[in-house]
């Protein structure tokens, strides 16, 4: 099987996990999760050098990933479980009492694979910069990845971090934005237009790669390029053009599924569109 085909099969199972998880607890955020599935699959199953068997907080010698838009925890948990950080059966506990799989990711219950709590938007890139600076102090040649939302770009802290990463040459940092054009109150372009994001980050001193974040080939090629261009003085940003709800036809093209769970019938319709490739949890 080709690598692309293999990654797509994993992504299909992750998408099944996502809709089943939010359906089971009747809450959570499927839209952004489905849109970012291809990117996280490519990162965790192809690009990142990681040791899921023995999770260590410090991750010395490993690539690190931080989820800044913590509400898309369903995709993050599914990816971590499918990659072996913890047993997939635990996905069934999502958002339930005494679960390690909290509504938003946290280190508080010691879930392997999570290095920072998130949920309050806008904070992840700062943490990623700190972790990237720690890697430099440790002479560690691995990379630090962080994913943010496009609505999240409205938070001022993101831009404090963007100035810092470029101004201090944090060139082992690879950020990404889930550029799906949607947020809670509607299209980003209406709620609070971001202008030309690519030009803005470039003006700050970043290398920016616009790409289709739902095209697996494009994603892995761009990640490869980013690793090649690391350690050359500039932070890098992947501007992932994605579809919120990607993979489930009735969840695409609207912000309705940002934070809404499918009912039984909608679950059935969604699962019919997503092949079970690795076995449901």
């Amino acid at each position: 099987m080709s690598e692309i085909k293999n990654l797509q099969r994993i992504a299909s199972q992750v998408r099944r996990d996502i809709v089943r998880m939010v359906h089971a607890c009747q809450s959570g955020h499927p839209g952004g999760s489905l849109g970012c599935t291809d990117y996280l699959t490519a990162l965790y199953f192809h690009e990142m050098k990681i040791k899921p068997e023995v999770f260590e907080m410090d991750g010395v010698g490993e690539d690190l990933f931080f989820l800044s838009n913590g509400h898309i925890s369903p995709v993050f948990y599914s990816i971590l479980a499918r990659r072996g950080y913890f047993d997939v059966s635990e996905l069934g506990s999502f958002r339930k009492l005494h679960s390690r799989l909290q509504g938003h990711p946290t280190t508080h219950e010691g879930l392997p694979g999570v290095r920072m709590s998130s949920g309050s938007l806008g904070q992840g890139m700062s943490v990623a910069i700190g972790a990237a600076q720690a890697k430099k102090l440790n002479n560690d040649q691995s990379l630090v990845f962080v994913l943010m939302g496009d609505g999240e770009q409205q938070e001022g802290q993101v831009w404090e971090a963007a100035i810092n990463a470029a101004g201090k040459n944090v060139d082992n940092l690879v950020a990404a934005i889930d550029f799906n054009g949607q947020q809670i109150d509607g299209p980003v372009s209406k709620v609070m237009p971001l202008g030309d994001l690519k030009a803005k980050y470039e003006a700050f001193g970043w290398i920016v790669y616009p790409l289709n974040g739902n095209d697996m080939q494009e994603v892995i090629d761009t990640l490869k390029l980013a690793r090649k261009n690391a350690f050359q003085g500039k932070p890098q940003l992947l501007l992932l053009k994605t579809e919120m709800g990607q993979g489930v036809d009735f969840m695409v093209g609207t912000h309705k599924w940002h934070g809404a769970a499918p009912n039984d019938e909608q679950l059935r319709l969604a699962l019919a569109q997503l092949e079970e490739t690795l076995g449901d949890y």
């Binding site: 959570g28 509504g103 949920g119 309050s120």
Partner: peptide
């Protein structure tokens, strides 16, 4: 607030 958890 419920299921969203401690961050919120």
């Amino acid at each position: 607030l419920g299921e969203d958890g401690a961050t919120h």
